[in-house]
Amino acid sequence: MERLFDDRLIAANRRRALSAMTEGADFLLEIAAGEIADRLSLVERRFEDAVELHGATGLTARAALATGKIDRLERIEVAPDLTSGAESVREAAWETVPLEPQSVNLVLSPLSLHLTNDTPGVLVQIRRALKPDGLFLAAIPGAGTLAELRDVLLAAEAELYGGASPRVIPFADIRDIGGLLQRTGFALPVIDEESYTVRYDSIFPLMRDLKAMGMTNPLLGRSKKPVNRAFFMRAAELYAERYSDPDGRIRATFSIIYVSGWAAHESQQKPLKPGSAKMRLADALDPNRKPTE
């Protein structure tokens, strides 16, 4: 399996971001936490044992607990710095789910699965950790996220240096995520996507926010060559030319895929077996068909 991401750099980025977090810089985590909590609040059951997997700040854990649907919740984090001062937190490697099979009722994954080298393997670990009829809820940045930034960085680098290297990570398409859930054994998957547009005065406060969120480039194939100020100034010019509003502010897109899936249980709805339908589709669609008693 080809590895895309540097696990140690991911941990270092998150550690640095948490230690220097500025007010409002975690707005994406706050959005994801609110959406996950809203979805959890609609589920008509309680969850005795829940886990927040690599949530960084614990925002999702706190929002989920506030729904009143959870009895106990444990956080799992990649770096010791991210666990200090918090209760019920366990340290684990980035792509390891340190849970016994069928040991928890709920797993929450806010904005971390997009950085896994073996996403199917992590999803299998999560599904195995769930008790029958356990629930998995996740928020995953999707295709379209930071598309504007990707475009102008590539354009500026090609123009100034005659080539380009990956400076914004790839993000999965919603259809790919849906296929992964099915292939890794989740039942009754539900997937939807929301896009958020955030406006900035220029490219520089956007890049500061990304650094503050621990979202700087962790690709193993990233260029190690330093770039000069002219590169960023040209990228800023291109961003303003291509993606600014009439008031001069630029737009940054963040697309988040929200996912739910269940560990299989005999009580769950199942599709009918082939040939077991009691009515032909053509009859059901016939506008002249009289209703039966």
Rank of each mutant, 00 (worst) to 15 (best):
S202I: 10
S202V: 12
S202N: 13
I203T: 10
I203K: 10
F204P: 00
F204Y: 05
M207K: 09
M207I: 09
M207C: 12
M207W: 10
R208Q: 11
L210K: 06
K211C: 07
G214M: 01
M215G: 11
T216G: 11
N217G: 10
P218F: 01
P218R: 01
L220P: 02
L220M: 09
L220W: 00
G221Q: 04
R222Q: 08
K224G: 13
K224W: 13
K224E: 14
K225T: 11
V227L: 12
R229L: 14
A230C: 07
F231D: 05
F232W: 05
M233F: 14
M233Q: 15
R234Y: 03
A235C: 05
A236G: 14
L238Y: 05
E241G: 12
S244L: 10
D245L: 15
D247T: 06
G248R: 13
G248A: 10
R249P: 05
I250L: 10
R251G: 07
R251Y: 08
A252Y: 02
T253M: 07
F254I: 05
F254A: 03
S255D: 14
I256G: 00
I256M: 02
Y258P: 01
Y258Q: 04
V259I: 14
V259Q: 10
V259T: 11
S260L: 11
S260N: 12
S260R: 15
G261H: 00
G261Q: 01
G261P: 01
